[in-house]
Design a protein around this nucleic acid. Structure first.
Lengths: 192, 192
DNA sequence: CGTCTATTTGAATGTACTCAAAAGCGGTGG
DNA sequence: CCACCGCTTTTGAGTACATTCAAATAGACG
């Protein structure tokens, strides 16, 4: 049941059996059907969320009704709206499932108690955040420097597993490209 | 000398006098002249860097020779190339001073020892990273959803202090806009 | 004061977008 | 198992926002 998340934790810190039991006792498993929402604008994000299986996406809808994917999360990734989680303010984002999925949720009060009871988790989340920070910096750099075609090429190189399972219109949105444009880019690539 | 950085630390954790002394003993003050480099592509980032005064920018140069600003850092901000710092791999970025500046550097070995000696710093940096993560997510969201004009308006609203001291071409670059385009956007805004 | 850099302005260009419609694909139910 | 329905992807045509290139003006630094 908790193999994957414990493996994820073990990448960064080592837990005693008692700590492991304590940690897993905080995890609330939850199944999400394809298209089911985990979060909607106006909701407050009350949990940290680990994806045990399946695939989620986090997105915004602008005033023209256009969706913009902010990130994806497949198994062994963490997701959520950090802003809402930290501040307790209503979120502006949707999070929903692109596939039937299973997630583990940790309540905010228990999450904060966890750092007090097992300070090692400060290190664990510091390291997750460091990695996330590096990935986001990289994404921003690419968005600033590269045209649409290059951004797509780098994306499928960096996340080959995503091309298999995520619809193109979602990938296009993530890259800041209209789906029609991505279609044309791919057609052009075929000709080689 | 260390007022500002201690204030910054105190926002998140409380240090004993001994811990304060230990922490400040790790800080290497360094002055940077305007236009002086702190980091160049190929260099390995060997320090964490706190800006005590002045203003730095982190940027990339693409294959056409165009500069793209990834972030700014004014007094009481941290800067650096997290990727290079964490992995020990050569950086792709430049960091230089837009104004005469003073920074405090912490060596990587001492930085890592700090977490072992004073685990509270795991919490401190976790919180810095949380805030940075939220800010970057916000920036990505805006880049995906808003046209150039709106991005500029939000920027000067969010960082009014930057408009005073950072050249427009740098702001344009940060926002992913050509300097000529930003000039026209501003002209258009004047007409109201 | 002179030089170098930043900003503004103009004109032409282009990349990617919008809108509209057809084709393809997959899931669901009869 | 097949037919239908809905959603995704593709294709086409016209457009727009922002870019590039070039040159003039303004401003800042030494």
């Amino acid at each position: 049941m908790f193999d994957l998340i414990l493996k994820n934790v073990a990448r960064h810190i080592t837990l005693t059996p008692e700590e492991t039991d304590y940690f897993t006792s905080l995890l609330k498993p939850r199944k999400l059907r394809r298209r089911q929402y985990l979060l909607q604008p106006g909701d407050i994000m009350r949990h940290e969320c680990f994806v045990n299986s399946g695939c989620l996406r986090c997105y915004l809808v602008d005033e023209k009704g256009q969706e913009h994917v902010v990130h994806f999360a497949i198994e062994e990734w963490w997701t959520g709206d950090m802003y809402s989680f930290l501040t307790g303010q209503p979120s502006a984002y949707y999070i929903d499932a692109l596939e039937d999925s299973e997630v583990f949720l940790i309540d905010k009060p228990q999450f904060e108690q966890l750092f007090i009871d097992i300070p090692k988790f400060d290190r664990f989340f510091r390291r997750l955040l460091q990695n996330a920070y590096v990935a986001m910096q990289h994404r921003i750099s690419q968005n600033l420097t590269l045209p649409a075609r290059e951004r797509y090429l780098n994306f499928i190189q960096q996340y080959p597993q995503f091309e298999q399972r995520i619809p193109l219109r979602q990938i296009a949105s993530y890259l800041g490209i209209a789906p029609e444009s991505l279609s044309r880019i791919r057609k052009q690539m075929m000709r080689r």
